[in-house]
Structures are given as structure tokens and as C-alpha cells.
Design a protein around this nucleic acid. Structure first.
Length: 175
DNA sequence: CGTCTTTGACCTGCGC
DNA sequence: GCGCAGGTCAAAGACG
């Protein structure tokens, strides 16, 4: 029954979607090439010139990590796969305002990390996208945001700052 | 009153 | 089989 959409609806103002869509396409192509079983099979880096997120001037670099996840651990359901993208962001704020509405549904202490990991789910009806946010203990200025799945709907609010950042992202094929 | 966060319990996978 | 770690659920409370 779970039908995870990977096709974005057209939205003229959704550069976030465009970017993630690009990543998704790349990831799928690379997945065919490298066909690793699981884990972080590919790393994508992005350089962002001085920028601000939600009014906080920070991020100089982002690192995107694409991987695949087995899901369906929900009480005996079938196992399927979802793309997952991790972005390392150097910022003082944990929550990047990416234009979507998120509801926090959990927080867990992570081993070897003094900061907890937070779990968020997109609140758009029918959207199953999740994200995890975690601050690195060995680099307190670095926040890792992991997106799981892709949005099948337009952004709900305008986030010029974030769009500006994304628009300047340069995607490197690999590390 | 609706929405969101907090937080402990619960479930599952994995390594030993 | 057991214990640990990661991920999710859901009740209760906070907040606008």
C-alpha cells in the first residue's frame, strides 16, 4: 500500500524540489552504477558561498550523503527502499527553515554523541517525508540533516534565504 | 481550540 | 538468547 512518490509536482517557485530532484536523479543513476548493498554508497558535496539560513549567517559548506534505507519495519510490513540524503550544515541553529512544515515525533540520545538526534515528519497530508537532525559532538557547529524520501507537493511557504542557498549549490559527482 | 513539542515506553534489527 | 542502539508511538502538556 505504501506508494512512495519520487516524482515532483511542477512548481515554479520550488527550487528546493528541483535540487532534491536533481540529487535524486543522480543518486538513482549512481545506484545503478555502484549497486552497493546499503550504507552510505555515495557522497555529494556542495559549496555554498557565505549565506544565511533563517537569518543566521553561517553555512560555508554542505555535504550531502545519499543512501538507501530499508523501511517497513512497522510491524511486519514488507521491506522497501527509500532514498536518503544527508546534509552537513555549519550553522548555529538546528532547524533549517526549508519551507516545509515539520512535526517532531521523537528525539533520541545517540551513542558517542552528546547531542540528541531529533526526528521530524512532514505534516503535509499524505506526504511521508521524514528528516533527522543531529549536531556533531566533535564539531558543535556542524549540523547533519538527513532527509528520507522526497516531497510530492510544493513548498508551503516562501523561504528566500534557503532558496538562495540552494540555488548556489554546486554538486560534485563524488568524493 | 488546534497545533506542536516533549518524553518515556515500546518495537525491531543486529552483533556477540 | 540477550543486550544494545536506533527508530517510532502516543499521551500529556505547552503555546499561540
Amino acid at each position: 500500500m505504501e506508494n512512495y512518490q519520487t516524482i515532483f509536482q511542477s512548481s515554479s517557485s520550488s527550487s528546493h524540489l528541483s535540487l532534491l530532484n536533481t540529487l535524486n536523479s543522480q543518486a538513482q543513476t549512481q545506484r545503478q552504477d555502484h549497486n552497493k548493498s546499503n550504507g552510505y554508497s555515495r557522497i555529494t558535496s556542495m559549496e555554498i558561498p557565505g549565506s544565511s539560513i533563517s537569518g543566521v549567517t553561517q553555512s560555508n559548506s554542505l555535504t550531502g550523503v545519499e543512501t538507501e534505507v530499508k523501511i517497513g519495519k512497522k510491524r511486519g510490513e514488507k521491506i522497501s527502499r527509500k532514498p536518503r540524503y544527508a546534509f552537513q550544515t555549519r550553522t548555529q541553529v538546528d532547524i533549517l527553515d526549508d519551507g516545509y512544515r515539520w512535526r517532531k515525533y521523537g528525539q533520541k540520545a545517540v551513542k558517542n554523541n552528546k547531542f540528541p538526534r531529533s526526528y521530524y515528519r512532514c505534516t503535509y497530508q499524505g506526504c511521508t517525508v521524514k528528516k533527522q537532525v543531529q549536531r556533531l559532538s566533535n564539531d558543535e557547529g556542524m549540523v547533519v540533516t538527513t532527509y528520507e524520501g522526497t516531497h510530492s507537493h510544493p513548498i508551503e511557504k516562501s523561504t528566500d534565504n534557503f532558496e538562495h542557498i540552494l540555488s548556489q549549490m554546486q554538486i560534485y559527482p563524488s568524493i
